[in-house]
């Protein structure tokens, strides 16, 4: 009998508590920055595409919903000529983000992707690429990697010495 009354009292007290329910869609839930939602391809601080088409996201994807084709621009930068994510298959596990060596692919705090037509859940590169550095501002893969691109020659990356003169006999 006592426990019954106690429970009713506790339920009554909830009338005065702060509401946990959001009146979605009028009211949006605040999502943490690391929420694993919609996938985007970000850009590096220079505005160039971060994705170098290494295929690691595709390999890591447990549902195999990413496909792309790597290619090379005349300036030496690698980029995907197409990049497709089939969100009707995606399970938002974030493995692609973990696998990405260039911080290009990032899961954003946005889950509002519902569609009436399943075909519309197939996102191409123009749907995925955003004009932002996403969660990792400041990182530029080509500044770290030893590969030469236009504007950054051999020996100009971080922690690199100028190229060796192979014709020199000096120690």
């Amino acid at each position: 009998m006592f426990s019954l009354l106690r429970s009713m009292w506790l339920v009554f007290l909830h009338t005065f508590h702060k509401r946990e329910t959001y009146q979605y869609p009028e009211e949006k839930a605040p999502l943490p920055a690391r929420w694993r939602g919609r996938i985007a391809l970000t850009r590096d601080p220079d505005g160039g595409e971060r994705c170098v088409g290494c295929y690691l996201c595709a390999a890591a994807c447990p549902v195999d919903c990413i496909s792309l084709q790597a290619t090379e621009a005349p300036d030496g930068r690698r980029y995907p000529s197409f990049f497709r994510i089939n969100f009707s298959r995606c399970i938002f596990c974030g493995f692609c983000e973990e696998a990405c060596p260039t911080y290009a692919i990032q899961l954003l705090p946005d889950f509002e992707m519902a569609e009436y037509d399943r075909q519309n859940l197939v996102y191409e590169k123009e749907d995925l690429l955003i004009n932002s550095e996403g969660k990792y501002p400041g990182y530029n893969y080509y500044r770290v990697a030893g590969m030469a691109i236009a504007g950054k020659d051999k020996g100009e990356a971080q922690h690199e010495e100028p190229p060796v003169d192979v014709r020199s006999l000096l120690p």
């Binding site: 295929y55 595709a58 390999a59 994807c61 549902v63 195999d64 919903c65 990413i66 496909s67 792309l68 497709r84 994510i85 089939n86 009707s88 298959r89 399943r118 075909q119 859940l121 197939v122 191409e124």
Partner: peptide
């Protein structure tokens, strides 16, 4: 066994 993209390669033509 690491082949990737099975569910995306042809998704642009038909999602099924």
């Amino acid at each position: 066994h690491r082949y990737s993209g099975r569910t995306a390669i042809l998704a642009n033509e038909n999602v099924s």
